[in-house]
Computed example of a mutant assay.
Amino acid sequence: MNYLIILFVFILMEAATWLIHKYIMHGLLWVLHKDHHDHSNISKLEKNDYFFVIFALPTIALMYYGSLSDFNHLFYIGLGIMLYGIAYFFVHDIFIHQRFKCFSKTKNPYFLAIRRAHKQHHKHTNKHNGECFGFLYVPIKYFKMYFNSPK
């Protein structure tokens, strides 16, 4: 049952990420997210990196309080969020934005579609008129670009 909680929360985090990204990061907290869309930013750290802390705090609290009661459902909810955060870091920060220069020469159509969708998101340098706010879910048109292309 605990594995189902983790899996359900991980999947639910994709919807939460889309909503948070579109309405909070491109809304109320644009002041923190703006430098992530600034293509002239050459710094390794961005104000946008504060979101890691913002999302980690409730995750840590869930895991801590869930561990106090013999590892109840709160712990596994926190674990699902944490695993999604780890996936986000590897795919978004390492693979897409190349903060560490590795995994740059993939031929995998899914990963190429993720990268293309994210580039479409970043072509908008302001908080309006954005697209592709999700992370692991990629609109079908980006899949078609790579699955239907000649090898």
Rank of each mutant, 00 (worst) to 15 (best):
N48Y: 07
E46A: 11
K44D: 13
I60L: 13
L62Y: 02
I60G: 02
M63C: 07
M63V: 00
L45N: 11
Y50N: 14
D35G: 05
K47E: 08
I60T: 09
K44E: 14
K47G: 03
D49T: 02
F52Q: 10
H37T: 06
K44P: 15
L57A: 10
A56Q: 07
T59M: 09
A61S: 11
L32F: 12
K34I: 10
P58Y: 07
F52L: 11
N48M: 01
D35V: 01
F51S: 03
D49E: 02
V53Y: 08
H33F: 05
N48K: 08
I60Q: 05
T59C: 13
V31N: 15
L57Y: 06
D49G: 00
I60D: 04
Y50H: 15
K44T: 14
N48S: 08
H33Y: 08
P58V: 02
W30P: 03
L62V: 03
H36I: 07
N41Q: 09
D49S: 03
F51R: 05
A56M: 10
I60R: 05
I54D: 01
H39Y: 10
F52P: 01
T59L: 06
L62G: 01
H37E: 06
E46V: 09
F52I: 07
H37D: 03
I42Y: 14
T59Q: 06
V53P: 04
K34E: 15
V31T: 15
L57W: 06
I60P: 04
Y50I: 15
H33V: 05
F52M: 09
F52T: 12
D38I: 05
F55C: 09
L45Q: 14
H33P: 05
H36A: 11
L62P: 00
K34Y: 11
W30L: 06
N41R: 11
P58I: 04
I60Y: 07
L32W: 08
I54Q: 00
K34F: 11
D49M: 05
L57T: 06
F51V: 02
L32A: 08
K34L: 10
K34V: 10
L62R: 01
I54R: 00
F55W: 11
S43A: 12
K34N: 10
M63Y: 01
T59P: 04
N48Q: 09
P58K: 06
V31F: 13
H36C: 07
N41S: 10
K34G: 08
I60W: 02
V53G: 08
F52C: 09
A56P: 04
F51G: 06
H33R: 02
F55D: 07
D35M: 03
T59F: 02
D49Q: 00
W30K: 08
E46Q: 13
K44G: 15
I54F: 06
H39R: 15
T59N: 04
D38A: 07
V31W: 15
H33A: 06
D35N: 01
N48V: 03
M63P: 04
L45V: 13
K44A: 13
L45K: 11
F51T: 01
M63R: 00
I60V: 12
P58W: 04
H37G: 03
L62M: 08
I60F: 11
